[in-house]
Design a protein around this nucleic acid. Sequence first.
DNA 1: CGGATTTGACCGGCGC
DNA 2: GCGCCGGTCAAATCCG
Length: 268
Amino acid sequence: MEKALLQTNPQFIDLNSKPMHETSMQNDELIQELSRMKWENKKLNELLTVVCRNYHDFAKKDCAEELFASRKRKSDQLENSGHIFHSCCGECSPGRPREIKSNTSRVHVRIDPSDTSLIVKDGYQWRKYGQKVTRDNPSPRAYYKCSHSPTCPVKKKVQRSAGDASLLVAIYEGQHNHRPSSGEVPATPLRSPVGQQPAANIDPAICRRIENEESEIDQQVLVEQMASSLTRNHSFTAALVAAITGRILDDGSEENDDSFSISRVLSE
DNA sequence: CGGATTTGACCGGCGC
DNA sequence: GCGCCGGTCAAATCCG
C-alpha cells in the first residue's frame, strides 16, 4: 500500500525503505514539504466541512420536496425537520414540533434501474415486515426492522425515488445498540444530488450523526465509527500512512494538529 | 424444519 | 363521523 502511494505520490517519504538521515531530501526541501503538508491539512479540514454542509443541505432539500409532494401526513414528517406546516398557505415555517423524532436519517443509494429489489446493504441485518404502495410514489415502500438483536429498536423504510428509478431512498429510525454485522459491504450513500459521484463508503449511522444536529453525539463512538468506515477506503489508508510519515517528520513541532494530508489523494 | 418474505387485514392519526 | 392513508401485524408461503 505504501509502495503504491509512493508511486502515485513521489513527494511522500518512504521511511520503511530508508532511515531518515539517509534520505536525499535536504533541510530546506523538508521545510517546504512540511509547509505544503500543513496547507493541505487546512484544505482537508475545509473540504470535510463542505462535505458535511452539503450533505445536510441536501437532506433538508430532499425532505422539503417530499413534503410538497404529499400534503397529508405533513405534521408527522415535519416532526423530523423541526418545522410546522401551514395548511392555509402550503408553506413551512420554523416552530415547535408536537413530537421530535431525533433519530431519523435519510440515505440515498444508486442502484441498477432494472433491479426491482428494495435492498440497501448497510452492514446491518434486517427483517422485512411489510410493504406498501404509497400515494405519492408508484413504487412500493418496504418496511424493515433490525433483526440482529431483538432489543434493537431501529427500523428503516426503503423506496425508490419518485423522480429517479435508479435511486433508492432509505429512511432510518432509531439508533442501533450494537455493532454492524461483519462481512457485509455497506452501501454507498450519496452525499449530493443525482448524477454526482458518490462519496467514500460511509456508514449510514455516521450520516445520521452528521445530519442530525440536535441529537446528542457520543464523540467517542462517532470517532470509532468514522475510523471504521474510512479505513475501508484504500485511498484513505494510503493517505493515513503518508500523514503518519508527515507527523514523524514534523517532530512534534505542530501541536493539536489532528488532520491528515489526504486532500491530494481525495482529489484524484 | 426454521427463518425470512409476502401480502391482505387491521389500526390509528389526520383532514374534511 | 367518515374516509384516506401510512404503518404494523400475522397467517400463509417460500426457501435453504
